[in-house]
């Protein structure tokens, strides 16, 4: 399935295939008459590009399958203590399916999803040759990048929520709800447990958006979307490997993945905010540096394809 065909689906009703032939549909109103409606339409078109692609649907299916597999596996053969993450707590409270799934998908699956979308953002258009047409319209490059980033943020949040929601629903159906055990050994009410899960999703989204910002920057450097995606993944894995080497402890706090697992601090009683703070600061710093770098690169480079 080529993206060009998908593009046809995006521009429903347009007989011409490919984005290149229909730049006007996608373009917002000229800058002089720019209104919020133009931004929204632009964003909607971008979101359609992300959520309308069959490839991304398959990706979402993979993300959603992990909590299902976990829930069914634990149901069929309950763990006898131990197991990674929150496995042994699942039988007591279904919400832990969501947390176990997030923990399992955090090192690789979620980064793959974010890296795919981020790598595709600019390089994908350049690769298909649609970027040139898009800019001929003319679309302000800064604005294009802002919309690309907004779509990336929305996708990241939705991917995290998808895993959590499928996990929570599967867990509640198979194991039931009730008060939730915290890492500190105390229990909080079911509603508070849901709240904690929502906070975990919010924190992980912030962390993953930082990764997406790095991907967006790499995507402006190349015309090969796969290359950008792989670069982001290599970076993610390298960061996790370096984080596991004690001799490199001096640089650990600067690694983009270093604070990801700090989401566990949200599951303590009381919540350990001082552990989350550096994680949020680190993620926002990475986001700020790499979105501005993407902007500097994208607004100054020659677009020839």
């Amino acid at each position: 399935m080529s993206a060009a065909e998908q593009r046809t689906a995006a521009d429903v009703g347009d007989p011409a295939p490919g984005r290149g032939a229909t730049p006007a549909r996608r373009s917002p109103a000229p800058a002089t008459t720019a209104v919020r409606g133009g931004w929204l339409r632009f964003l909607r078109s971008e979101l359609w590009l992300v959520y309308g692609r069959r490839r991304n649907w398959v990706g979402a299916l993979v993300l959603a399958s992990v909590p299902v597999i976990i829930a069914v596996a634990v149901r069929v053969s309950p763990p006898s203590g131990g197991g990674p993450g929150f496995f042994d707590l699942i039988t007591a409270n279904g919400l832990f399916v969501a947390l176990a799934a997030l923990t399992l998908e955090l090192p690789l699956f979620l980064p793959i999803a974010v890296a795919t979308i981020a790598g595709d953002a600019v390089a994908g258009e350049a690769n298909l040759g649609t970027l040139r047409y898009l800019l001929v319209v003319p679309v302000d490059r800064t604005r294009l990048l802002v919309v690309k980033f907004a779509a990336l943020v929305i996708f990241t949040v939705s991917a995290t929520l998808l895993v959590a929601a499928v996990g929570a629903v599967m867990g509640l159906v198979l194991f039931g709800g009730g008060p939730m055990l915290t890492l500190s050994g105390t229990t909080v009410s079911f509603a508070a447990g849901l709240g904690r899960l929502a906070l975990v999703c919010a924190y992980l989204s912030i962390c993953l958006v930082a990764l997406g910002a790095i991907g967006l920057f790499i995507s402006t450097l190349t015309e090969q979307p796969i290359g950008a995606t792989i670069a982001v993944l290599v970076l993610t894995l390298a960061s996790q490997i370096m984080d596991a080497i004690p001799q490199l402890s001096a640089i650990h706090e600067y690694l983009p993945t270093h604070y990801w697992l700090a989401f566990g601090d949200l599951l303590r009683d009381p919540i350990a905010l001082d552990g989350l703070e550096p994680g949020i600061v680190s993620a926002l710093a990475y986001t700020a540096v790499f979105t501005t770098a993407a902007w500097a690169r994208f607004t100054t480079r020659d677009i020839s394809s």
Partner: peptide, 8 residues
């Protein structure tokens, strides 16, 4: 409380 990454 001795706080590990996903444990305590």
């Amino acid at each position: 409380s001795l706080e590990g990454r996903l444990g305590e």
